[in-house]
Every structure is written in C-alpha cells, then in structure tokens.
C-alpha cells in the first residue's frame, strides 16, 4: 500500500514467517526503514555477550545500518547497533531471524522471533533534518506564510532585525502602521521571555526615536500565569501558536 501523501509504506499484520522475511528483505534491498514487532529473543556478541529472554519487542532496522530493539518502556533501546552494520533476514526452523553485523569491531546482534505480529517497511525519502522540525524557525515560517496568525493585517518587514539589545525574530507593522516586535518560542514561556521582549521594545524605542509606542508580542504554544501577569504589567501581548500546524 501507499499512503495518501505518496510515501511508500508496506505493512502486514500477523504475517507468516515467509511474508515477514520477504517484506524485510525487499525493504533492505531498496534502502527502506524496516520495523518488526513480536515475541523474540535477542543475542549480542561482541566486546561482551548478552542475551535477552523471550519478550515482546519492536525492532527497527535503518538503511544506514543502525538497529534498535525497543520494549514498551523508556526512550533508550534495550539493545542496538550503530550505523554501518549489514542487516540480514532469514528463516531458521520456521522462525524469522534478523542479524545485524558490524565488521570492525566485530559485533553481531541476532533477533530470533517466535512470532512476528507486525512487519512494516517505510521508504523514507524526505531528507528533512529532524533537528529543524518544530523549532522557532518553523514558527517563524508559519507566521511569514500567514501573518494573520499574529493578528489581522500584521505585516512582517524583516526577520532577525538587529537592535542594540540583540536581533528580534520578526519585525513588522500592525494595521495602524505601528511598529511590532514579535518574539517566537516553540515551548511554553516564562518570565525570561517577557524580559526579552521588553528589552527589544525598549531598545527599538531608543533606536528609532519613535514617538508612537512600539508593540511587543510574544508568540508561543503556552505561557505561565506569572509570565502573563508580567506581560500585562508591561503592556505587551501574548499569542498562542504551535510551531507547526499539525
């Protein structure tokens, strides 16, 4: 099957060993990311040796050669191999066996499935760096694409505009032509962020010698009660917005 956005995904629930092996092998061959879930044992041989007894685990085999074995707890895998390993999948006495081998230093991770409950292959072609998703940059882009998210008729004029107090994220004008400083945060904000916006507004007021008051707007997913009070004391505003629309 293929998802609606065109990303090739293959997925089989309760596959036979042969179906699971074919799906994984096809995934390895075309550089896809493969995941297998089911009851399995895990053996590692290398600088040390270890065995994990039978348990339900999620095994992820990435096209860069890394392998991750996860349980339903924690963010760390219970066993793993770094990038650069070779993945193999075979059927041994009716069981699906996945091997991830690393030549130097010599290491081998073997996962033997009693049963594969779910097998999937994801052809991940999007090179987007994970580190730049859901960031302040995404929030900036979202606002530049649709400035009305800040308020109706807001016009961004520049980003990263320098002031004596540092660069402001978005510098623009409101419907009445007043200068607006927008500070972006991808996470919940507290007193520090209020202090920041206040400094940019003060610095611009001195810099521009503008008689009209400069408006300061803090944009973030949420704000603490105390920060909201401080913002109100300073006559500045808050707009609740997530970095991405999803």
């Amino acid at each position: 099957m293929t998802t609606a956005d065109g990303t090739p995904v293959q997925s089989i629930t309760h596959p036979t060993p042969e179906e699971a092996q074919a799906l994984a092998q096809h995934g390895f061959d075309r550089g896809a990311m493969v995941t297998l879930f089911g009851r399995c044992t895990v053996d590692y041989e290398g600088r040390a040796a270890s065995t994990l007894g039978p348990g339900d685990r999620h095994v992820m085999l990435k096209p860069d050669g890394s392998a991750l074995v996860h349980t339903d707890e924690g963010q760390q895998p219970v066993n793993w191999q770094p990038p650069g390993c070779d993945h193999e999948v075979a059927i041994d006495e009716g069981h699906v066996v996945v091997r991830s081998e690393r030549p130097t230093p010599e290491e081998e991770l073997t996962v033997t499935f009693e049963e594969v409950t779910h097998a999937a292959s994801f052809d991940v072609t999007d090179p987007t760096d994970l580190s730049v998703t859901g960031t302040e940059e995404d929030l900036r882009q979202r606002i530049l694409d649709d400035p009305d998210l800040v308020e109706p008729e807001f016009t961004p004029l520049s980003t990263e505009r320098n002031t004596p107090a540092g660069a402001v994220d978005i510098y623009g004008e409101d419907a009445d032509g007043r200068t607006v400083v927008v500070e972006l945060k991808r996470r919940r904000v507290g007193p520090d962020a209020v202090g920041q916006v206040d400094r940019y507004v003060g610095a611009l007021e001195r810099d521009l010698h503008d008689d009209a008051a400069i408006r300061g707007i803090l944009v973030a997913p949420s704000i603490t009660d105390r920060a909201r009070e401080l913002l109100a004391e300073k006559g500045m505003e808050f707009v609740a917005l997530e970095p991405t629309a999803e």
Partner: peptide, 25 residues
C-alpha cells in the same frame, strides 16, 4: 551547523513590496 533552512522569504520586505528599513541585512 549546516545550511540554514531556506525560508523562501529571505527578503521579506522585497517580497511584500515594502521599503527596506534601516537595519535590514
């Protein structure tokens, strides 16, 4: 840190047809 993600609006002022302000870089 690698390439800055392309914003498509690097020159916001020009895109919007408004005059560049003092301090624009």
């Amino acid at each position: 840190g690698g390439s800055a993600p392309h914003s498509g609006t690097d020159d916001v002022a020009t895109d919007l047809g408004v005059e560049r302000r003092n301090g624009y870089e």
